[in-house]
């Protein structure tokens, strides 16, 4: 398992990285390498050029504003997880990050790398869709912003063009009182989820004022469950509602065929998972 030959450039600045990406047909960004290096060694990816962005200064910033948290392309999962300010502003991210791999992998793997890669079983893309994040893509032609809800198109397929780099992920700060909803089923702790739910619920004056829920792992890309939200909005949380919502989750997912479970099994798992994490989130909200 040795990778095929490739050229390697250590980018010295963002412009350097972007111009290199623009000038080479088959170039690829190396961030934390936790997905890419394995793919190279398995020869699943055989790029001509690898552009290493790890030595570009200034890309590892987390900026916490009043409305947004901005995450740079070299912010490691571990760095984000260790930032109390960030996880307070984005409680869903705080709840989901411990499920992303293991400490050694989180020390290198980047949150933007995970978003750029678009692994259907990854937690960060699901959170980005649930929270309505914005992804900033840059190339020598300039920058553009793409809503996370538009960005993920299918299995490892995103709106990013090959010469574009994800230079920032912007997550809206959770409104006061909003609660994270998160749980997943994985073979072992730290494994990619076989299925999971990520979302945020806001109960205001006793009724559900905002609710966004995403199913992931079993779908080709994170699936925003809009109809589930529609059932919930304006209602007071209660066990009967949770049962209805959980059933609605099971009805709305479209699980892919997988050797690990039939779609019917997935629906059963979703219903149970939704019951549990909605109970947890709503009881918490009542306090």
């Amino acid at each position: 398992m040795k990778s095929a030959n490739f050229a390697y450039i250590r980018a010295t600045s963002l412009d350097h990285a972007l111009s290199t990406l623009a000038n080479t047909e088959d170039a690829i960004v190396l961030a934390g390498g936790q997905s890419l290096v394995a793919a190279l060694n398995l020869r699943l990816q055989v790029p001509e050029l690898v552009v290493d962005i790890n030595h570009v200064p200034g890309l590892d910033q987390i900026e916490i504003g009043d409305d947004e948290v901005r995450i740079g392309p070299l912010v490691r999962h571990a760095q984000l997880m260790a930032s109390d300010e960030a996880t307070k502003a984005l409680p869903l991210i705080g709840k989901a990050l411990p499920h992303v791999a293991h400490p050694a992998i989180r020390n290198r793997g980047t949150t933007c790398g995970s978003l750029a890669y678009g692994d259907p079983a990854a937690e960060m893309p699901a959170c980005a869709v649930a929270l309505g994040a914005t992804l900033v893509l840059a190339s020598t032609d300039g920058t553009r912003e793409v809503a996370a809800r538009e960005f993920f198109e299918g299995l490892y397929e995103t709106q990013r063009a090959p010469h574009e780099m994800l230079i920032e992920a912007r997550f809206p700060v959770a409104p006061k009182g909003a609660r994270p909803v998160f749980d997943e089923v994985a073979a072992r702790r730290g494994d990619f989820a076989t299925l999971g739910l990520a979302g945020q619920i806001h109960v205001d004056s006793g009724v559900i004022a905002a609710f966004d829920l995403v199913a992931f792992g079993s779908e080709p890309a994170p699936l925003l469950l809009e109809n589930v939200a529609d059932i919930a909005l304006g209602k007071a949380p209660n066990p009967g509602l949770i049962t209805d919502l959980s059933q609605a989750v099971a009805d709305q997912v479209h699980p892919m065929e997988s050797p690990l479970a039939t779609p019917q099994m997935r629906r059963r798992q979703y219903r149970a998972l939704a019951e549990r994490c909605l109970h947890a989130a709503m009881e918490f909200a009542d306090v």
């Binding site: 073979a187 050797p259 690990l260 479970a261 039939t262 099994m265 059963r268 798992q269």
Partner: peptide, 11 residues
Amino acid sequence: FTTRRILEAVM
């Protein structure tokens, strides 16, 4: 006794 086999049995 994977998740799939357990669910198969239960279902």
